[in-house]
């Protein structure tokens, strides 16, 4: 077949056509290929390489695939201390239970709202930040700004939560700044209305600098001659950004958008768990925090597993569809 292709290229003719006219040639080259290696041969020859795989594969089976299979308890009665696969089948009981659970629908709504707000605010900010950095002439200033902007990414979510409590406390900076406007101190972390703005703005703070790295890398790969040509054509800097820079960034933007849509439902569970309290549940409680309370704090493992499975399936569906969409629209795919 390889020979056929090469010949077709020389003849400037599609390979398929050539195979049709000369099926014998393709047949001959196929028979020349070495026989497909069997597993036994491959393992005997390369057993040392396969032995390196043993521990990691064991890891994936135990800590990744067993829990996936463990979701079977969403359909089986589970008793703490009993079998991890549950005791007996209960069918769709737990699925029906959460479909009829008003709290579930509230946390579902909260998850979608927080996911959407994060996508709207946290996704574009690194792009804008990278574009602004790109306009700096001083390399040194650029490097300093960048280095500082990564810093929040390396902080434990516990520290981030601690800082949020500090800034939003009754005596904190936010209240000091707002005091002339509001008259009195606002107890930010006790008010449901404030949870979303605080959550999203802290997310932007954490992710903006780090998120810009890939865009900055992509910016350096854009062909400098394109800008020169545009300048000769009289394009100003804004036009250059619109017609050269942004199209140059489009593939990486698409890829990251797919990844972000895929993790849409995986809102910052740990941060919410650290920040929320019953007073802000109406806006702060999300699927993962709810199932954590139902499952681990109240021991309804099967019910919580049913909710978790539902969430994972939505997550998987989102990645697959976002990827299919990006493949069709811009031809970039994650795999």
């Amino acid at each position: 077949m390889a020979d056929g292709r090469a010949a077709a290229e020389q003849l400037d003719m599609p390979a398929a056509t050539l195979e049709e006219v000369a099926p014998s040639a393709a047949g001959v080259s196929k028979s020349r290929k070495p026989a497909k290696q069997t597993w036994a041969v491959a393992i005997r020859k390369d057993w040392r390489l396969y032995s390196l795989l043993a521990l990691p594969i064991l890891y994936f089976i135990i800590f990744r695939y067993l829990p996936m299979a463990g979701n079977v308890i969403a359909f089986r009665k589970f008793q703490p201390g009993g079998s991890i696969w549950g005791e007996y089948w209960v069918g769709l009981t737990y699925i029906q239970q959460f479909i009829n659970d008003p709290t579930f629908w509230n946390v579902f709504k909260n998850t979608i709202i927080l996911g959407a707000l994060t996508l709207i605010f946290s996704f574009p900010m690194p792009i804008i930040f990278a574009l602004l950095l790109n306009e700096l002439r001083s390399k040194k200033f650029k490097r300093i700004v960048q280095s500082i902007s990564y810093l929040p990414h390396f902080m434990s979510v516990v520290i981030v939560a601690g800082m949020i409590f500090q800034l939003t406390s009754l005596q904190g900076t936010f209240n000091q700044l707002l005091a002339p406007l509001t008259g009195g101190a606002i107890n930010f972390m006790q008010q449901a209305d404030w949870f979303r703005p605080i959550y999203v703005s802290s997310d932007v703070w954490q992710s903006m600098g780090w998120g810009a790295i890939l865009y900055l890398a992509a910016l350096t790969t854009i062909d400098e001659t394109l800008y020169e040509a545009a300048r000769i054509d009289g394009a100003n800097r804004l036009q250059q950004t619109r017609h050269i820079t942004l199209p140059g960034l489009a593939p990486i933007i698409m890829t990251l958008l797919v990844l972000n849509i895929g993790s849409f439902m995986a809102v910052g569970f740990e941060k919410i768990l650290l920040l929320y309290n019953p007073l802000v549940y109406p806006t702060a409680d999300v699927i993962s925090t709810y199932l954590y309370r139902v499952g681990i704090l109240s021991n309804n493992f099967s019910y919580a597993a049913a909710i978790g499975l539902f969430e994972s399936i939505i997550g998987l569906t989102l990645v697959l569809s976002a990827n299919a969409l990006s493949k069709r629209l811009v031809g970039t795919s994650l795999w």
């Binding site: 800590f63 990744r64 695939y65 067993l66 829990p67 299979a69 991890i84 919580a304 990645v319």
Partner: peptide, 21 residues
């Protein structure tokens, strides 16, 4: 083998089955 690893990026067991395990 690559697939076994990459699949876990997009689908995971979730908190509860992990905790049980």
């Amino acid at each position: 083998f690559i697939g076994i690893a990459v699949f876990t990026m997009f689908f995971n067991g979730g908190i509860i089955p992990n905790y049980v395990l």
